[in-house]
Design a protein around this nucleic acid. Structure first.
Lengths: 120, 120
DNA sequence: CTAGAACCTCACGTTGACGTCAGAGGCAAG
DNA sequence: CTTGCCTCTGACGTCAACGTGAGGTTCTAG
């Protein structure tokens, strides 16, 4: 598939896909004329990249961890790195949960108990 | 208290505190000579700001929501805004949980079952 | 064969939350 | 009074993950 097709299937911009390749996160074969070609696996790969970005990992960190996913093997170092990221994510979940509860409390408090006070 | 004291107590840089004020998130009284002075409540205020930043809210969004926290009152609009942010955070928590599980799976897979394969 | 969509490679622009530096004034201690 | 740290206001720098435009090639439908 061509880069536009991959972009459509993943809802990721063409520019972003080229950027991923530039960062070493995504590989492509090239056609005779130099156009990028991707296999079906690229769709899942892009989704994984997006998910890791969404969890706050930098492209550098992702670039360090993806080969280990590809190889199905991890060195002690990369395993520690993976565990560290997982712990960071767990901490982030706890923080977000706390924030959500706080927001809920704010909503509750500011919503009542005197609705007629909504003059602000 | 002066801005350096507030920075120490909150572990937030002096620059960031001035930035918060610039964005309308934090207020200060000024001394005769123009130096910022803060009450003890500022510590909690800064922590709230940090928490909201940490949850991915922009300074603009925070600026819109803080007055409603201060007043203890919310308009229907701000309530909708608060609820929207809470929902976004909930979605983010779900996403992060999924990512963490995926990371855990990767760790498990790449850690075994043949330790002697750690040649990468 | 040709128009137009899709692709290529530079390379500069954008945004948010600050970092950092310059130049100048303020304040408690000795 | 002066040494040294704190604070002030600009104002430019940074960094990541792209957006955007230029200028040119390639592919595909009719």
């Amino acid at each position: 598939m061509r880069i536009g097709d991959l972009a459509n299937q993943t809802r990721v911009s063409v520019r972003a896909l080229r950027y991923y390749e530039e960062q070493g996160l995504l590989v492509s074969t090239r056609s005779e004329s130099g156009q990028r070609r991707y296999g079906n696996a690229a769709v899942d790969r892009v989704r994984l990249i997006q998910q890791l970005y969404g969890a706050g990992l930098s492209s550098r960190t992702i670039a360090e961890l993806l080969p280990c996913v590809d190889a199905g093997v991890s060195t002690p170092e990369s395993r520690a790195r993976l565990a560290a990221e997982r712990d960071r994510i767990n901490a982030q979940i706890a923080e977000l949960t706390s924030t959500r509860d706080r927001l809920d409390a704010i909503i509750e408090v500011t919503s009542g108990p005197n609705p007629q006070c909504d003059y602000v």
